[in-house]
Amino acid sequence: MIRARVTVTLKNGVLDPQGKAIEGALSALGFGDVAAVRQGKVFDIEMEGSDRARAAAELKAMCEKLLANTVIEDYAVEIG
């Protein structure tokens, strides 16, 4: 079994109203050092088999085809 974590984040320059709202809420809670918040998504994926190179290629394809919208999002894959 291969365990992977895919992280999807908004590209630089894409406005993130949800991140901004969270940033405001953190400031309101007194976390005065918060300079910026960007919200993203994490996917933990378990895959059958043990071929890591194959899994890496499959995971990249999953990101391109579904998990990220590459118009606005970047993705990173970590294989555990």
């Binding site: 894409v14 406005l15 109203p17 949800q18 709202a21 919208n69 118009v71 606005i72």
Partner: peptide, 17 residues
Amino acid sequence: LTEAGMLPGVLMRNAGL
């Protein structure tokens, strides 16, 4: 249609949330 790539761009969360 944008997610399918049949139209350019993307519809994001409303700016006012």
